[in-house]
Design a protein around this nucleic acid. Structure first.
Lengths: 306, 306
DNA sequence: CAATCATGCTCCATCGGTTGAGCAAATGTT
DNA sequence: AACATTTGCTCAACCGATGGAGCATGATTG
């Protein structure tokens, strides 16, 4: 009423203005709980998100809020600490608050959340990590990883006169992004006729400590190149790298994901910046639409060589 | 009802269990809109936050959500892009959703938001930047800045045989934190009998570009030391520093706020890590309590020398 | 055995905003 | 003037959870 529905309701301009004026004076604000209850639409778009500890997720959060606001929706983000149980609990909670649409960002089991949403008649979308049962918007991980791998290999050749193979550090083999990136990683090696030994893939999780832990025993006695699978893993790699002493000069790495300080890290040859604005644009294009449920929408990334 | 209030209502254990079982089976969830409307308590704690683009705010967001959940409240964070108008609009929106308590983090005009809350009978709290009209939890900026200034001065003396004065880059003179940090900055200089010329204070905003812009014309012809007033400003400082060529070796800096890659930046002698868990612990101690309205609660910081 | 009390359950008003229905007055039509 | 139509406003049901009032029972007491 207070919004704009009075035009449809044969209320005279004059009365409407008078009401609006009084409302303004009294500092009246619509009780969205009551409004949502009656209209069966809350205008809330919920998002679950693993962490706030890196620029990728931070940018997603900011863009998501900005776009939601621009679309007259109320954004609510909840951070689930990469904990599958917390993801489900948070999704349930958001559904309790009657979200109109729920977006799962980087969820470990997005289809489980889609099922929950379906049971409540709520639209479900996936971001960053794809699901089978709801439309997904993700980065073109394969091609970006291919480009990054080539960049690292090129730099190793140019600066260390060494041809690989690289190592792959960080992430989880079970997750779709890691799989897609590994695919690009292998493809780049294959195209050069380079074999990658199994033990060169060290994907034991995203945390800095697990990356540092896997590298701990590794002290290079010659040139070495590393594909780092997230800025969080990069923290571990850099910690390890900085403890190498002279051997550090023989190491080159690149990272999937961007950080403003990345270009100042010795040995870092480049980073992949995911195109967050484009991803969210695509995502909001799906909100309120019927499923269609094609393949995930893949957004190209920017490779930033240093 | 579905929660636990049936015990008070003389409902038999048996019936209660039967209802709960059916509810479980049907995937029933309480409609929080309806519940909040009736109970006049939403269980929502709102927080407005300037940005998600650095570790400090990211850590606040994560801790806030974790603590809210632990206290059976539903956390809703909204990011306001350091825009005063957006802050007020976001506060209004959160009040529309009937938050039980609203926390202003790093708000440019916290008292305006407190006034809005008061008009709605909602508790208001400030975090990171203090207000006059609501209880505030902030870092002990003055003492931490004093310690950081001393660290930078000591390193300049030891490594560059130079005694200062340092420059102060980033932040806004109008904001309380910048003022408190400047105070510690000056105090450390005064204790050493060092005069700080006016033009050494370059606080033209928090963004990386404004920091880089203010430094652009500055090409050191001797030793130089810089107190950097946030990791975002640090991005600008590092960009400038990396373009200095040989002169870069004559520059030392330290930064208020911590970043995992900070210790690898050449010239960086240390960072201040604010104690986010302690801040939020103190903040949640105030939720639901009567004002008391003493001075801001000041939480000590950790100085991390590199 | 009647009166009192405790137990277990049902009913319904309520929260505040929304919206269809309905009524009265103004305007238009023949 | 008699009737139809439009305009402007008021009323009340409703959304779902909550919790007090109230009504049947069954248990307890003098």
């Amino acid at each position: 009423m207070i919004n704009g529905s009075w035009k449809k309701r044969r209320i005279s301009e004059k009365l409407a203005q008078r009401i609006l004026k009084v409302a303004e004076e009294q500092g009246y604000a619509v009780n969205m709980q009551a409004s949502a209850l009656r209209k069966d639409r809350s205008n809330i778009v919920g998002m679950i998100m693993p962490k706030y500890d890196n620029r990728f997720f931070g940018a997603i959060a900011e863009q998501f809020e900005a776009l939601a606001r621009a679309n007259n929706m109320f954004p609510v983000i909840t951070c689930t600490q990469r904990d599958p149980d917390l993801e489900v609990e948070a999704a349930r909670e958001l559904l309790s608050y009657q979200v109109d649409c729920l977006i799962s960002t980087g969820a470990t089991d997005p289809d489980r959340i889609t099922a929950l949403c379906a049971a409540n008649g709520v639209q479900s979308l996936n971001l960053d990590l794809p699901g089978h049962d709801a439309p997904s918007v993700i980065s073109d991980n394969g091609n970006a990883a291919h480009a990054l791998t080539n960049l690292i290999l090129d730099r190793c050749k140019a600066e260390l006169s060494w041809e690989g193979p690289l190592r792959f550090v960080g992430g989880r083999l079970s997750d779709n992004n890691t799989a897609a990136r590994l695919d690009g990683f292998f493809r780049a090696h294959n195209e050069r006729g380079i074999e990658v030994p199994d033990n060169h893939v060290m994907a034991a999780g995203y945390s800095a400590n697990s990356a540092a832990g896997r590298l701990a025993d590794l002290h290079p006695d010659g040139p070495m190149g590393i594909f780092v699978n997230s800025t969080i893993s990069l923290e571990g790699v850099v910690r390890w790298h900085s403890g190498l002493g002279d051997a550090a000069a023989q190491v080159r790495y690149g990272c999937f994901d961007w950080d403003p300080f990345g270009s100042y890290l010795p040995g870092n040859v480049g980073m992949v910046e995911q195109d967050v604005p484009a991803m969210l644009e695509a995502l909001f294009g799906l909100i309120g639409k019927k499923p269609k449920q094609a393949d995930p929408i893949r957004i190209p990334c920017h490779l930033r060589p240093f």
